[in-house]
Simulated assay, not measured.
Amino acid sequence: MRVNREKTVYMYCNFSNANVDVSPCPSIEGSPLKRIEEFKYHGSIVAPKASIDRDIQNRTQTAWLKWRSLYGILCDSLMPIKIKDNVYKRAVRPALLYGSECWMMRKTDEQKIHVIEMIMLRCSGGVSIMDKIRNN
Rank of each mutant, 00 (worst) to 15 (best):
M104Y: 05
G30Q: 04
I36P: 12
K66C: 13
Y71F: 15
G30S: 04
A63Q: 03
W103F: 01
A50K: 15
M104N: 14
R106W: 09
H114F: 05
S23F: 01
D85R: 03
P24T: 06
K40R: 11
R134V: 07
E38L: 13
V3K: 05
A18G: 07
E117A: 10
R90A: 14
K34R: 13
N86T: 13
I28P: 00
E6R: 11
R106Y: 14
M118L: 12
F15R: 12
L96K: 12
N58I: 00
W67L: 09
S44H: 08
Q61W: 01
T62N: 08
S27R: 00
D131H: 10
K84V: 02
D76V: 04
P80A: 07
K112G: 00
L96F: 00
I113C: 11
W64T: 05
N58M: 06
N4Y: 07
N136C: 07
L78N: 14
G30H: 03
N19K: 15
D131Q: 10
S77K: 14
F15Q: 10
S69Q: 03
V127F: 07
D131A: 00
R93H: 05
R2A: 05
R68K: 15
S16G: 06
F39E: 12
V92F: 02
K82S: 15
S31G: 04
R93P: 01
K40P: 02
T8N: 04
M104F: 05
K34C: 03
E6P: 00
C25P: 04
T108K: 14
L121M: 15
I56K: 04
N135V: 13
K132I: 08
K7G: 10
